[in-house]
Write a protein that binds this DNA or RNA. Structure first.
Lengths: 344, 344
DNA sequence: GATTGAATTGTTAACGCTAACAAAAAACAA
DNA sequence: TTGTTTTTTGTTAGCGTTAACAATTCAATC
């Protein structure tokens, strides 16, 4: 029968008492040990050890007025690319004694303000946004906070502040060109609901412009309303594609997950990929290279996005002035052509 | 050229000044509005609005000595099951005004103490462990903190405190029995390095005991040293399996990822699944049902684990006594038999 | 209109910590 | 020695908030 003892962490006061010194001596022994006499330091360390003392970071922040927390806002933890970005960010920030506080927003819009309120209530040193789809109120609130804000995984033309990302429109266009280069002309774009996914819309815009450039039909677009970005969306979507545009020879899927669903459904129906239908994804998911046929996708340096964001943040917290370019990093992407879109 | 203004959030003092009331009145207007006169409340609310005031949660915690943060320790964000557990936990805790602080440990052992120190320095109200592989020192530190600790995704016989999980040994045994029921007798277990994955070892133990029960060879075990739990591990592993145990008719893979790699490699080699080799995974990854053939796996109620953990935590923070069972929840699991192990 | 109790607002101290200054102790110089 | 640095340690006040109590205001009663 589990019981909660009163969770009483030792305080600096108790450590001081036990070591027979003043509070400040303990504080100094921890943060600037070199200014404390060796013998005293030993006593303090012994007391810390004996009492299992761990300084209260919140109290410290309050006193120094310097936060060591960086908040990361991400839509969900389910997309591995985002997780890698958090990894990169976390490891970069760790070097500077900064820690990551993760706030998941679950894609829900009406709680965005509440989420931001919660985050800002924790007084972070900066905010990293992984989804940048923000209401005007939210932008306002963030900017008004005066904190460094870094938008990632996108490259908006009107950034709030700093940016580390890439152009989704360029992704859409590059994948389209790749397929055109493979002699496809009946290319269909398989996406999700337009109103909730600005990045998907950007990729779609890229598709459209690349098609138009070659005077191809840029309106071959199929939208799956349910199951946004899931494997199931791909399954459903490919069927719609083949219904609506039976002459389709290539499908650009919004993400690798969607592409996977599409490929699996093709296999089930005995449709050969890439011979009858070529398929591309996006996002460089770990499974993409292992599918049979292996999936053409885009490689994004997700970890690197996090590292860059961490560097920018640190620089700005040091009040280092950043040039325009230093504060706006386009990490680019790479089209990884694989068997799902390249005939043997 | 991004610049960091001095990040100066308004304080309660400024709100009070602007509203022409005392600090406490502001505090009360926020936390117990019903005891503040309507007219005063209006004034305070206007001031809060005007100044964009957001209370400093850290200062509040310091004053009340009540934390609203629950720390979640997880090895990495990359496993979707864990992410779902965090979702469940987060949404349950939200109901009670508690927030989740995520600490990723990246599976690295020597920083475990440092990680715990960082976490405890933030003075959470409780700790939820998603990986429970802990050093004696770590256990000591957590227990010594007096905080409620909830281990999840496992069902250890010697829990530190509360537990929400399932028996990995039972998983291994159940999958083995499933294959035996399908008339397999040459079953090989495909796992990873034994020293770093106690849960995998438990599943292996389950396999062994189920095999032994039927007087079958329980030593058909292949270990992939690199790429722990990745798709690639499955690719490499299945080859080793077929080399070492050419008579294998069924393979139990440590996770769905591994199973996916194994299936893909089989396909590449023209080995029919399940006719020549049956394959099972574990973990209920989203792709498992979409593979062709669909993958036999175990379904774990990952979200539910989080919800249960949240409930237990809340109860304990209310100092509600929990019975032995209430503090030790076995959420069980389900073998989901699919085409990869069941002949049509 | 004084009395009283309830409703409302204010004051003080404390949470755990550290910056800034003050004091004491030790080391050095004359 | 005795003064003068330098090193080391201590004291005070304050970070933003709230619990606990104190004071004030208000409305209702006699």
């Amino acid at each position: 029968m589990p019981r909660t003892k009163n969770a009483t962490q030792a305080t600096i006061k108790e450590v001081a008492a036990r070591a027979g010194v003043s509070l400040m001596t303990v504080s100094r022994a921890i943060h600037r040990p070199e200014v404390v006499a060796a013998t005293t330091r030993k006593k303090v360390e012994a007391a810390i050890e004996a009492l299992n003392y761990i300084p209260d970071a919140g109290a410290g922040r309050l006193s120094t007025q310097k936060s060591t927390t960086v908040a990361v806002v991400l839509p969900s933890l389910h997309f591995e690319g985002h997780a890698r970005t958090v990894d990169g960010l976390s490891s970069e920030l760790r070097k500077h004694g900064l820690h990551v506080l993760i706030a998941d927003s679950f894609y829900s819009k009406n709680t965005e303000m509440e989420l931001l309120r919660r985050i800002l209530g924790r007084r972070p040193a900066g905010v990293v946004l992984i989804n940048s789809a923000h209401s005007a109120d939210g932008r306002q609130m963030l900017l008004g906070s005066g904190l460094p804000v870094i938008e990632t995984w996108d490259f908006p033309s009107d950034p709030m502040d700093s940016v580390v990302g890439f152009s989704h429109k360029a992704v859409g266009a590059a994948l389209t060109r790749h397929l055109i280069d493979q002699n496809h002309s009946c290319i269909t774009f398989l996406g999700g609901p337009q109103d909730s996914d600005p990045r998907g819309n950007e990729r779609l815009a890229g598709f459209r412009s690349a098609m138009a450039d070659q005077h191809l039909d840029a309106d071959r677009v199929v939208t799956v309303e349910q199951d946004h970005l899931t494997i199931n969306a791909g399954k459903l979507g490919i069927s719609q594609v083949l219904d609506q545009y039976p002459d389709t020879t290539a499908v650009i899927c919004l993400t690798d997950r969607v592409a996977m669903g599409a490929m699996m459904e093709c296999r089930r129906r005995g449709i050969s990929v890439p011979d009858e239908v070529a398929i591309t994804g996006h996002g460089g998911f770990d499974f993409s290279e292992h599918l049979v046929p292996s999936l053409t996708t885009t490689h994004i340096d997700a970890y690197g996005i996090g590292v860059h964001a961490g560097r920018i943040l640190h620089a700005r917290l040091q009040n280092q002035l950043l040039s325009e370019e230093q504060g706006r990093i386009d990490v680019g992407f790479e089209v990884v052509a694989r068997d799902s879109s390249v005939r043997a």
